[in-house]
Computed example of a mutant assay.
Amino acid sequence: MAAVVVHPVPPSWKDLGKSASDLLNKDFPLAGNALEVKTRAPNGVAFKVAGLRDAKSAAIAGDLEAKYSDVKNGVTLTQTWTTSNVLKTQVELENQVAKGLKLDIQGHLLPATQGKSAYVTAIYRQPSVHTRALLDVFKGPTFTADAVIGRDGFLLGAESTYSVPSGAVTRYALGLGYAAPTYTVTVHGLANLSVFSASYYHKVSKDVEAGAKAIWDSKSTASQVGLEVGTKCYLDNTAFVKAKVNNANIAALSYVQALRPGVKASFGLAVDMTKLGEASHKVGTSLTFEACEY
């Protein structure tokens, strides 16, 4: 009897090329000084307080989040309150209606202006397919759908947005990729196939990662292709450094150190190589505290 081959669930549309994006964008605290504190109560409620002091304006923005997860029944409730006075509520129901189906309902309220928004998302995941349907209730309303199918490492994805009032497709995009155990390659055609990007990620060894991303906007007056390359190197099991540079002559470095279990510090620096004598460089820090599980 032939063995049954079970294909893995492919990544979502937004996660196509995620490995390269994380390598080039994550762990670079350049906007200012950030602080994040995470704790968990004995009843399973998780709290998170996050704040950022902007380096340019010195303004402080933050949010307070409380999340309760009932893993057994597949229910998650998240409440968030931001310093801009936005109240956010999110309810997630997983495998309640059907196996592999997740419902995500979000609502945002601005008490000062009575502004509001609501989103209903359905995500369906099965071997070889990952789909999502999103309804923006108050904006339009608009309906966005995307899907990614995968087989033997090859990935094919598409996204489109339909405006109910105008009765027309307002946005569409395509994506193609290949994922191997140590590397991934992804190509996107975005903004109605007017912006094209290609990314590459390679896990060179257990201690070294490398990646690159190129972007070309066909509608831009400049015909130049934007290119960014970066690398990540683990110094030991508690620290790593990252470096990246782009063709706009911006070089960035970061250093991340786990000070102790649950405490992580990050330092970032971005230098404009064409303006070394000017105050155009960026420096930032990030400190994260996470309480141990009960």
Rank of each mutant, 00 (worst) to 15 (best):
Q90A: 11
K88C: 02
I250K: 13
N249Q: 14
V148Q: 07
Y255N: 05
H281K: 06
D70N: 15
N247K: 06
N73V: 05
G268P: 00
V245G: 03
V129P: 01
S194F: 02
V6F: 08
A158L: 08
F289N: 06
G107P: 01
D22P: 00
R171A: 12
L110F: 11
A198W: 00
A20H: 03
G262T: 08
D15N: 11
T89D: 12
K219H: 08
Y200Q: 06
P111E: 09
Y68N: 08
G262H: 10
K219Q: 13
A222G: 11
G211T: 05
A41D: 08
V71Q: 14
T82K: 02
E94C: 09
M1K: 05
L109D: 08
Q79W: 05
N192R: 08
D63I: 01
V9H: 02
K56S: 14
V283G: 04
D152Q: 13
S12E: 12
N247W: 10
G167M: 08
L134M: 13
P261R: 06
Q96F: 11
T142Q: 09
R132G: 00
P181N: 05
A2K: 10
A212T: 05
L64T: 06
C233L: 12
N95V: 05
G107Y: 06
A248I: 04
Y68K: 13
